[in-house]
Design a protein around this nucleic acid. Structure first.
Lengths: 200, 200
DNA sequence: ACCTGAACACCGTTCAAGT
DNA sequence: ACCTGAACACCGTTCAAGT
């Protein structure tokens, strides 16, 4: 509530999340530990547990914070393909900076069930003329591919930065992969456009 | 070398791999430990290290053993789409039985670099009329999607068997997803068929 | 309510010692 | 060469105790 003070005095949940975020960005999720966060904050290990109930909960909070770094879903006048492409590449770029986070998140029970993002995606595709079934499939396939790609990308560059240009070749892979996904979605969905009722 | 005896007497690498395989199939990779393998074999924990140099190496050997459970790549006369579909679903079914294994493997440095499987896939797509660039992309995208899907599938049913029919809904997801991938590959690749030089 | 150190129940793996 | 128990360096987390 009060603006000033209470910064290096009292430990806050925000400070813990920020420290965790910084550590994952720097060293990757593989070497992330509760002891490391506490150490980063100059506090006893168990002190973090006053604000957070488990390691997984903390990583989940980091995931939520990170999820606000990428561009929001927007269906501009350049069509759903462009909007989806923009979103996926932005999401990829963000997760790239947190090695292992995407791989962790896709294995969590909450993955793909968060009502906010789920309904936002369904709305996005519905607005673009997809029916409910195709909208869900489009969302599922593109998210699964992207997170899978990120998990594969994280296999290199764990520990030290990637050699010879950070992820230039990786970026190419995603871009082409995303094109395959978008094309596949377009050609397998019945999209109600101003043109023909069925794609192709 | 000698046929009989040497079964419950001497510990063999094969027995260790089989025990590990059994444990991962039953409990998933998340709860898999070297102590659990040793316990399963009725042997001291460190005894396993006589035949294997690390936990990751052992999981890698399990992965190799498991990789021979699915149908081999075959380009029958029903086209690359049918061949790819058959292979991916067979691979999915196999990995489904080893929760967490696909998610682990896709994060390993070796993933996608094994010369045998890599060249077999390139040969598969080249034979179907793909150029080298499109062949590699097709292989990369389909493998990334499938492993990603398996990682997502593993998020439920960790610990105990899945409720209400094992993976019926999951199976639907992969089938539709694979269709999107195959269609995307077809429509973005320049395939030299007896018909037109460019797909669509 | 917030913070702490000691301790518990696990890990993978090293090491010195046995056969 | 094969097998072993003790020990080391880590984990996440519980607990009793402090403020």
């Amino acid at each position: 509530m009060n603006r000033a003070s209470a910064r290096r005095d009292t430990l806050t949940l925000e400070a813990i999340i920020e420290a965790a975020q910084r550590l994952i960005r720097r060293d990757g999720l593989a070497s992330f530990s509760m002891r490391a966060v506490a150490n980063e904050l100059g506090v006893a290990t168990m002190t973090t547990y006053t604000h957070v109930s488990s390691k997984d909960e903390l990583i989940g909070l980091v995931q939520e914070a990170v999820s606000q770094e990428w561009a929001p879903i927007d269906l501009s006048d350049d069509g759903w393909e462009a909007g989806l492409r923009r979103f996926l590449l932005s999401q990829w770029e963000t997760y790239q900076r947190y090695p292992g986070l995407a791989g962790w998140y896709m294995q969590q029970p909450e993955f793909g069930t968060k009502p906010e993002s789920y309904s936002a995606w369904i709305a996005f595709f519905t607005k673009a003329g997809f029916n409910a079934r195709d909208a869900e499939l489009a969302w599922s396939v593109s998210q699964t591919y992207l997170m899978g790609r990120l998990a594969v990308d994280a296999r290199l560059g764990r520990g030290r930065p990637t050699r010879s240009g950070p992820g230039l070749r990786a970026r190419e892979y995603v871009e082409r992969g995303v094109e395959v996904i978008i094309t596949g979605i377009r050609e397998t969905s019945a999209i109600a456009t101003e043109g023909s009722p069925k794609g192709r």
